[in-house]
Nucleic acid binder design. Structure first.
Lengths: 328, 328
DNA sequence: CTGGAGTCATGAAACGTTTCAGCAGAACGT
DNA sequence: ACGTTCTGCTGAAACGTTTCATGACTCCAG
């Protein structure tokens, strides 16, 4: 109990310095390789002491002194959505390449939680913020612009000053997906989509390609949400012969619903979905998708926040990946 | 460019203190509610200043001063595995409930990356470490025990001193799954498993229930790994009529392989898998699984590292969840 | 020898916070 | 009137780093 109270830093720079018979400054120089030269012999002695004592620099102290936390924040709506998991992996790797760690926070679809996470990350002095917003009610994302933290939005384009955006041309991507379905001869293409500003361009693309509004069912971008929406959509007397689903997660739920209803894919219903998450290739049948290049987007986002240019807006193409669910 | 060089804390405690006409100490008291009383009127004035200036305490400085970073580390082998994503969500929620943030690091199946992450997290003074190891070559996990950071292992039981473990009774769980298959009348139950110390108990459970060793194919715990292993297993002339798959990810890949081979589930091949991740309920057909209660485990893990008792070993039951893939 | 350049190590300041010791003044009982 | 207690605030120290200004020492040219 008392040994737990006495929760102090195990080994400090000063300990190492004493052990090696040098000053603290030299220890710092050895650890960071500069900015002053250190004699090879001394460096060796210091390194030996570091090893012997198991010294590990206190990141908080370094961050305080240098003003650089070497921390990046990532906020996603739902880490259980494999698309965001893919994004997280890619961003984590890029960050690590540049010596940064990533604090990942999942909002679980709640704007309130999102706001809390954002506040918390700002307090942690993260040097960059990658955000996939949950529903984008707020043009200034939770007052983040005021903090001066370089921020990139990854699933929506914002006009807020100082905020960059990276995303795909969702309207065109969606239109391409629907057009592909149309090319198979389907006249009516249903839509399953989340009722949310972040994906409204997908709805527009669908409508544009279709030239009219087909049957729509709405529900959250989750497997369960897609399942329920699909149950409604294909329970209709005028059920469509094909459907464009605005996220892979919903498509996965949709597939289960269709299976339960005894409708075969693609023979009875053709399916195309948006996102191209890792698991969209492993459904039965594998999903034909409009793919977002999240790996690329993550890399660009990390570069953008870390290299500190002016706010930018980058739009990547969303490309159709044909697999089996469309009937090809 | 120069305005970016001049990267200093926007608003500090001292700024607020000056603005409100009080000392820095009072600002701290107001923010934290103590440990000294503050007159209601003064508190109001300070709060107004905080609001007006947009003050946000510097977490690094607080961490340095108090020795408490309010940070927890979570290391998972692969965040794309929805089981770990589920774990991450649960752990993040528990941590947030207690005022902690979670740094999540995904090792992507590499022990080297895992070690790097662990080192980095230790340097960040995380106050607890939740680790799902990637292959468990190292009884002392990457020298973490030396750091004195409370650590919980979540997918393997370790004898390392000072390290807690929380996990399921995997041998029994696996045996239950296989026994269920046996109950359907299948005599030979194949096995798809990752060649790795972290899951060897599942293999033992399978063998124990079976009373012998059936056909095995090995591959990584990923969708692709399961897909390839299944292709081999069911390409055999003596292909089994049922299979126990040691992870949901592999089972999802297996389902795709079976679909490609024209084998129906469960009519031609019955499948039971281990884990019970979120998406195991949304495959076609939905997977019968041996479920790990990751939500519960995450909660216990957070409590364990934060409440600071002695190292413990907790084993939860893994329970069979019957869905459709077993032929019930 | 002297002076200048070069190499290496040192001490101390600063980063922004939390918290302790101390102090002024008011309130109170006697 | 005088101690005593309470309330509300302040100043300063400390946390562990990084880095600057300084200085000691060596080396070499003149």
């Amino acid at each position: 109990m008392s040994d737990r109270q006495a929760r102090k830093q195990a080994v400090t720079q000063a300990d190492v310095a004493r052990h090696a018979g040098v000053s603290g400054a030299v220890v710092s120089y050895v650890v960071h390789g500069g900015p002053r030269p250190v004699a090879a012999e001394t460096a060796l002695r210091v390194r030996a002491s570091i090893e012997a004592l198991g010294y590990r620099p206190n990141a908080s102290a370094a961050a305080l002194r240098t003003g650089s936390s070497k921390l990046l924040g990532l906020v996603v709506p739902d880490i259980g959505n494999t698309l965001w998991a893919d994004l997280t992996v890619a961003a984590g790797r890029c960050a690590a390449d540049r010596g940064y760690d990533l604090i990942t926070a999942s909002s679980e679809g709640s704007a309130t939680i999102e706001r809390q996470h954002l506040q918390s990350l700002a307090g942690r002095q993260v040097e960059g913020l990658l955000v996939t917003v949950v529903d984008m009610v707020d043009p200034d994302v939770a007052g983040i612009t005021g903090t001066g933290i370089p921020t990139v939005l990854l699933n929506v384009f914002s006009d807020a000053p100082g905020v960059s955006s990276i995303g795909v041309d969702a309207r065109r991507g969606a239109a391409d997906g629907v057009t592909h379905l149309l090319g198979h001869g389907y006249r009516d293409v249903g839509l399953i989509i989340h009722p949310d500003e972040t994906v409204e361009l997908r709805e527009q693309g669908w409508e544009q390609a279709l030239g009219s509004r087909g049957p729509i069912e709405r529900g959250p971008s989750t497997r369960q949400g897609g399942y329920e929406a699909a149950l409604r959509l294909f329970g209709r007397p005028d059920r469509p012969r094909s459907v464009f689903v605005s996220s892979d997660m919903q498509a996965i739920g949709c597939l289960r619903a269709l299976w339960e209803l005894g409708l075969r894919v693609p023979e009875d219903v053709a399916v195309v979905s948006f996102d191209g998450a890792a698991d969209s290739a492993f459904t039965t049948p594998p999903l034909t998708v409009v793919r977002q290049p999240v790996g690329l987007m993550a890399r660009q986002a990390v570069d953008l926040v870390l290299d500190g240019g002016p706010a930018r807006r980058i739009v990547e193409p969303a490309t159709l990946t044909v697999r089996k669910s469309c009937g090809c």
